[in-house]
Amino acid sequence: MNRLLTYLFRTALAAILAFITLPLVVVVAASFSPTSAVTFLPSEWTLQWYAALWDSRWLDPFLLSVELAVIVSLASGLLGVLGAYSVAYAKCPGHTAIMALLLSPMSVPQIVKGVAVVLFLSSIGLYDLLGTPGLVMAHIILTLPYVVRMAATAMFGFDKRLDRAARILGASVTQRIRYVLLPLIRSGLFSGMTFAFIISFNNIPLSVFLVRPGQTTLPITVINHLEYSLDPVLAAVNVASLLFILGAIILFEKIGGFSAQFHGGSK
């Protein structure tokens, strides 16, 4: 019986993994296809679609998306850690309500959020903020809950006796945050910021309301392109984005070390 269950679970796991990875395999294969129709397992291989990416048509949106993702993850990281500190650590008055409010953007459909941001900006006469500034703001709203969530979880798990220990050793509140709290929640914070980065970089439903001609993010450019043609250049874009995101995750993990728990140092 147990053996049967084990096999069942393994099969299920394999199916899930296949479901996740196979479409990626198809995309990767298609990106090397010489014909302009997307085909799986092409008979010949070419890099022409990757070469085609080296064009301002794709590069500009890519750079805007990167810029956005960097600004958004940093800003969310900063705001998120401040929010989590007052809510989860210092337990300011009404902290449970504030926490719910901070997390609420998670449960609002992004389309609704997008419309709301546009209406809000135009109603207060700041319609000009559409484009990059609006994108930054909207993406921060979108990603902040993830960072708050991760940072708050890390702070809930923080042993307050460490704060007392630092205190009796003469550390001021800023010293305690800098030398004790932040290093210990760093992995939580960085994993939240990684989420923020990826979410911002990949976002479509919110960005679609806020981009302007000449200020378009990469995913929106892909969508626009898709309206006219489905060709392997899109596969190439996807593969390139995938590699970029992978690189970003590795970089975040190098800085933040969020996969490593404190299992004895060697760091």
Binding site: D159, R161, L162, R164, A165, A166, I168, L169, V180, P183, L184, F262
Partner: peptide, 13 residues
């Protein structure tokens, strides 16, 4: 003043 805690409260990092 110095304080030694029951659980030591050493900084793990």
């Amino acid at each position: 003043i110095g304080l030694v805690f029951q659980n030591y409260a050493l900084f793990p990092h």
